[in-house]
Amino acid sequence: MTSELGYSLRDRLAYQPIHERPGLKLPGDARVAVWTIVNVENWSPAGAMPRAVLPPPMGQPLLPDIPNWSWHEYGMRVGFWRFLEALSSRNLKATFAVNGSACKVYPQACAAARDAGWDFMGHGFIQRPMHKVDDQKAAIRDTIAAISDFTGHAPRGWESPGLTETDETLDLLAEAGIEYVADWVLDDQPVELKTRSRPIVSVPYTVEINDVVMSAVQQQPSDEILRRGKDQFDRLYLEGAKAPRVMAISIHPYLTGVPHRIKYLEALYDYILGHEGVVMWTGAEILDWYKTQPKASA
């Protein structure tokens, strides 16, 4: 499938192995840039839940789905505030991937993220795949407007709900002013993606160090984010001695924000912070750094 200008997915970027690119250099010869993405979503209790922890009785979905909606809501009432404490106590800032509609549904959480200096990133207007959005252009516009009204600044980054994109999504994001995306989980360094108007940067994101995959899909033990996160960091740190790498940590308040998992996230941060040659950045900071670096040829 192709976009309006004939771009297939492979047309969006050239294939270039990581060892054949122009050299990148982090400040102070750091090896790894680590960014945390806190995902805040608006799950409507009137519809089917995007994810479920408890299967419906007799296998028959029922609405309203109180237990699964409440499972998510716990994250916003309690879990999010554990994230805020874990990050702020370590002088860390997150990238805040937020549904545009969540700015009104969860104003205190959004205000706390804003006041903490987090980098707001568009995450769709409501938690729905982009393929199911009737008017993507309007949804992108409404999301940007909601974040702009709340923070005073338009978001520079975008993470689609479920990392979903149609053939046109990337073009619409670039035309709306979005500068970087987190949907393309295909590299350990930023890369430029072609659109019909201007390039947009893919900042390395993750479906591996991501609590949706670890905790909700794979149902790993509570300490998986620490065990897998350390292994991920160790390899990137080793390779970063030759060329810098980017590590993403993607978390959701209803998953890692629960009592039996939060200490493992805190332990992962402490492990990473125990190393020299690491910068703890937001998505926007990674973007700004990448813009100063020599670019790969088209």
Rank of each mutant, 00 (worst) to 15 (best):
L62S: 14
G122P: 06
E175Q: 13
R114F: 07
S250L: 10
L84N: 13
W289Y: 08
W281Q: 06
D142A: 01
V212E: 06
Q218E: 14
P50C: 10
V279C: 03
F120L: 09
D171C: 07
F83Q: 08
I286H: 02
I37T: 15
L172V: 06
S101K: 04
A284V: 13
Y180A: 07
A30V: 06
T195I: 05
M130N: 12
L87P: 01
L193K: 10
Y254A: 03
L173K: 08
V38Y: 01
V105P: 04
C103Y: 13
L238H: 15
A113D: 08
H275Q: 04
T151M: 00
V258R: 15
H275D: 01
L163E: 02
R21K: 14
S44Q: 10
S202P: 03
P107L: 11
A284P: 00
E224N: 11
S101F: 06
E4P: 02
V133I: 10
A174D: 07
E165I: 02
H123Y: 05
R21N: 10
R77F: 00
L287F: 13
Q220H: 11
D288E: 09
H131E: 11
Y237G: 07
I249G: 07
G124K: 01
R245P: 00
L268V: 05
V203K: 03
R51L: 03
A138V: 15
T292G: 06
K263Q: 14
P27S: 14
K93L: 01
D115C: 09
E266I: 12
T282Q: 04
M1H: 07
I140T: 08
Y205N: 09
E85W: 02
H131K: 15
A243S: 11
W289T: 11
P259W: 01
G240R: 13
G162I: 03
E224L: 03
M1K: 11
F96K: 05
L26A: 11
F120S: 13
E85M: 03
A94Q: 01
A109G: 07
S297K: 08
K291S: 10
L87Y: 15
G177W: 04
M1F: 03
V191R: 04
I209Q: 01
N210W: 11
P294G: 10
R156G: 05
M280C: 10
K93S: 07
M214V: 09
C110H: 12
T169S: 13
G157Q: 01
Y106Q: 01
D231I: 03
S160W: 00
Q218C: 14
E159R: 07
A176C: 11
R51G: 07
T2H: 12
W184T: 15
N91F: 10
R261A: 02
Y74V: 12
T195L: 00
D270F: 12
Y254S: 15
F150I: 05
W158L: 05
A86E: 10
E85T: 12
R198W: 04
V98H: 13
M130L: 01
T256A: 12
L193D: 02
H260A: 12
Q189W: 06
V217G: 04
G157M: 05
V98W: 03
Y271K: 11
Y269V: 03
G47W: 04
G229L: 03
W184M: 13
E192G: 09
S3N: 15
H252Y: 12
E208I: 14
D142M: 05
Y180M: 02
S44L: 13
R114E: 10
G59R: 15
H19I: 08
W43E: 08
W158I: 04
I144V: 15
E85V: 08
A109P: 05
